[in-house]
Write a protein that binds this DNA or RNA. Structure first.
Length: 413
RNA sequence: CAUGGUGUAGCUCGGUUUGAUAGAGCACCUAGCCCGGAACUAGGAGAUCGUAGGUUCAAAUCCUGCCGCCCUGACCA
């Protein structure tokens, strides 16, 4: 990617009316652009981050047997009436066709999915089913806030598993738990498994919470055994850990994932049944596993930055290398171009600051703001030694490395 | 939905108290100069001051309604 051709520009000042770090930096650095409260475009850099996050999620979901599908974003009224939620789901964006018919913008997909399942499941031989999608959801939130952390339109991975019995479902719940731990580890996010309320569907759920002042949730975290509980289900006034009796601390956090047993809830309302080996009809038991991918992007931006800008981990960064040609002689530009072409040919992900209009200082400042993990600088100084200068975004020290060595180094990684 | 803040050029802001020709910096265009941490010089273009109404000889400025955005709260299937 050449910055001169990139469909985004950095801003010298961060937007004045944003308070959360993710909104300030992501907008200032040109990752996202706001149309209205809680409604964003993802610009090239932002889309790359989002895609990386979603691909990490996808990979782990596939590993535990998940089958990916894509359901519609537009939901016919009839499917929501079938579950009785057309009237009761408060955040439903409803819309009318000009030619008759009413629809909703999908805030969640049980209605659509259970329709699909009714066509698919009739025997115990059809189970289990592990199905997921990554999609844009719409919720008429009373108050969008904090950049990507709470929006009216957001990206989410929703996974559902369907089983012949609770035992099978509970066993799979543990599989998903481990997969989630792996996902967040890959994303570089410390997401704490937290016991929480299950809403209308189950008594308890497990949330994955990232400690952060900008978060909306409050959790009690045990310093001793690390058990975390969402404040919403804590009734007693004692701040002792239920598990080990240790002292707990109260922390604000961002909920980046939520898994819970859905059980027979929707199966009952739409009569989703299968015949067991004895020919007896039974309700299908389900589990539901959500993960907000655009919110994860916001959470990462919120948690990982310094006063100069964002700091992406390699796994989710919009590129691996930020190549800067220090303005000056034609030789420098020529060498940088050659280096860029070479790296691209080798499959490296490079953001190349090829601008002739920016000063060295601007380029450095933009590199810090955008936050790609590795910065490579080509200048007259470095060319005298046939080298480029490397610096990690997360560190201050710079090293000179021979151009040939850089080529092979990036190739190896 | 309620409280508070806020709305002037693509961005960040002056100007509003005390009504009278709308200003700057950045970004952009032209030319020059410079080139390792957000340069410089000269010139240029860009704003019906959120919106609708009212008061006034005259409104960015005063009054009223509405709208957008941000914060806090309520909500979160």
């Amino acid at each position: 990617m050449r910055i001169s051709r990139l469909f985004s520009k950095t801003q010298k000042k961060s937007p004045k009316d944003e308070e959360s770090k993710n909104a300030r930096f992501l907008e200032q650095a040109g990752f996202i652009s706001k149309s209205a409260a809680g409604i964003y475009s993802f610009l090239p850099l932002g889309l790359r981050v989002l895609n990386k996050i979603e691909n990490i999620v996808r990979e782990e979901m596939n590993t535990v047997g998940g089958i990916e599908i894509l359901m519609p974003a537009l939901h016919p009224k009839e499917s929501w009436e079938a579950t009785g939620r057309w009237a009761s789901f408060g955040a439903l964006f409803k819309t009318k066709s000009n030619f008759g018919g009413e629809y909703a913008l999908g805030p969640t997909h049980e209605e659509i999915l259970y329709q699909l399942l009714k066509r698919h499941i009739s025997s115990y031989r059809d189970l289990p089913v592990y199905i997921y999608q990554i999609q844009t959801k719409f919720r008429d939130e009373p108050r969008a806030k904090s950049g990507l952390l709470r929006t009216k339109e957001f990206r989410m991975k929703d996974f559902y598993s369907f089983h012949t019995d609770d035992k099978d479902r509970d066993a799979y719940y543990e599989v998903i738990k481990k997969a989630y731990a792996k996902i967040f580890q890959k994303l570089g996010l410390n997401a704490i498994p937290t016991t929480a309320g299950g809403g209308t569907f189950s008594e308890l759920s497990m949330e994955f919470q990232v400690l952060c002042e900008a978060g909306e949730d409050i959790i009690f975290l045990c310093k001793k055994c690390n058990l975390a509980v969402n404040k919403e289900i804590v009734s007693s006034k004692t701040s002792k850990c239920k598990n080990c009796g240790g002292a707990t601390i109260e922390k604000k956090a961002i909920e980046v994932g939520n898994i819970f047993p859905l059980k027979e809830h929707f199966a009952k309302s739409v009569n989703l049944i299968f015949k067991d080996a004895a020919g007896k009809e039974k309700l299908v038991s389900a589990g539901c596993y959500g993960l907000g991918t655009s919110r994860v992007m916001g959470a990462i931006a919120e948690v990982m930055s310094d006063d100069r800008g964002l700091i992406w981990q390699e796994a989710v960064a919009p590129a691996s290398v930020h190549l800067i040609a220090v303005p000056g002689g034609a030789e420098v530009k020529k060498s940088a171009e050659k280096l860029y072409d070479g790296l691209i040919a080798k499959g490296a992900e490079v953001l190349y600051d090829d601008r002739d209009t920016a000063t060295a200082g601007e380029k450095f400042a933009d590199a810090d703001l955008i936050g790609i993990p590795l910065r490579a600088v080509v200048s007259e100084k470095t060319l005298e030694k046939n080298s480029v200068e490397l610096k990690k975004r997360s560190e201050n020290k710079t090293v000179l490395i021979k151009i040939n060595d850089l080529n092979s180094m990036l190739h190896a990684s």
